[in-house]
Each structure stands twice: as structure tokens, then as C-alpha cells.
Amino acid sequence: MYGERSGWQRDGFESHEGTVGVLLADGSEPGPVFFDLGSGATFHESSDWWHYDGTFHRPTAVTMRGRCACGWRGTKTYPIDWETVREDDDPDAYDTTGPYAEWKAHLDEVAGRAVALPEDLTALLGQVRERLDRLWLEEDPACGYAAVLRACGELEAIVAETGPEAARALAYEQEESMPAVAEALGMTEKAARARLLHYEYLGR
């Protein structure tokens, strides 16, 4: 795994996006760096690891580690060789295997604590996705597009019928335990609250 300018994600756990985090020489995690784009009071901020190279008075990171949007941080740190980064002039060429591996292990734990779908339902959902993918190739383009949209309509009808009831029941039963809801859904608490609200009021 080499440096990626976009974060790391896993299907079904998108709110647990992973990135490379950095630490300064004193062991602290720096805040975002700011860029003056020359447009008055408008500043761009970034937490991308390669911006902490000490240039333009920015903080200089000495090590990197895995980081997740949920607040998790990896326990292992990996030195940053800024000479190599500058020579390659391409952050994507720098090896971030270590931080990625730790984030992946963290996601395995998140997935292990989430409520597991029944095997037959998991298989059915996979078949639906695979069948929709094949529709593009099997049908006349116009018919294929229409068939996919009809299928999407059927799926939306199922969601609109079952989602709100499940969301309201879960919100009621777990009113004082949002962390437990988030863990069961494999999401951050912020994402879990948004998911409950989305389905609770779906169709209203």
C-alpha cells in the first residue's frame, strides 16, 4: 500500500474513513495546516500528511500512523523520510503500508462488533447487486437503463416500508445508548444519528 490522496474506505463502513496521521517530535498530533489562497479572508485547510514537511513555517512531522474518522489512532508509528518524499515529488509513491495495515485491523474489529446480517440475506443482496450490474450488458442500452431504474424503485419501496419502523424502534429502545447503536451499525455516532433520522422520517 502506497500513499493515497484519498482516504481508505470499506464498503458498509464509510464513516470509518482512514487516513495517514502524523506526529511531531514532541509526540503531539498537529492541527490542520492553512493555506492562503490569495482571496481575502478565505483560507484552505488540510490534514494531509505530506503537508507537514516544515516548509512555509508549517509543522514538521517526524512519524506517521494510522488514523480513523471515528477518533481511533494507531499505536505503532513509522518514521517519515522527507528526503525521499521530496525526491519522488509524489506522496502517492511513499510507502504507507504500516498505517494502512493498522487501520485495516481496526476496521476488522469494527466489523466484528457490528450486527451481522443473516447469511441468506447477505447472499441475496449480493445477487441483486450482481444482477443489476449484468443488466447493463444484457439489454439494449435504453431497456437496460429502464430496467435498472425499475429495480431501484422496487428496492426503494421496500426500504420506505421497513426502514422507518426499524429506525424508530431502534431509536426508542436505545435512546440512552447511542454508542451501542453506532457499534451495532458499524458507524461513528454522528453517522448513526444521521442514519436513524434519515430512515425515521423517510417518506414523510
Rank of each mutant, 00 (worst) to 15 (best):
P179Y: 01
Y2L: 14
K104V: 09
W103E: 07
E165H: 08
V20R: 02
D89H: 07
A194N: 15
S46I: 00
A167W: 05
E173C: 15
V85S: 03
G66L: 01
G3Q: 06
W136N: 11
D140K: 02
L132M: 14
L170E: 15
E29F: 00
R131K: 13
D95H: 02
Q127W: 01
Y201V: 10
H16W: 01
G12T: 09
A105Q: 12
L137R: 12
D133Q: 10
L170N: 12
Y2R: 09
A184L: 11
A169L: 11
E154R: 13
C70S: 11
R204W: 12
L117N: 10
G54T: 00
D133S: 09
H51F: 05
H57L: 07
T63I: 00
G203I: 00
G66M: 02
P79V: 01
S28Q: 14
L121W: 15
G112Q: 08
W8T: 09
A146M: 09
P79F: 01
L117S: 11
G27T: 09
E139L: 06
P118V: 01
E173S: 07
G74P: 15
L185M: 11
V22Y: 03
D133T: 08
E138H: 10
G7F: 05
L124T: 12
A182N: 06
D89I: 01
E176A: 07
A151H: 07
E102A: 05
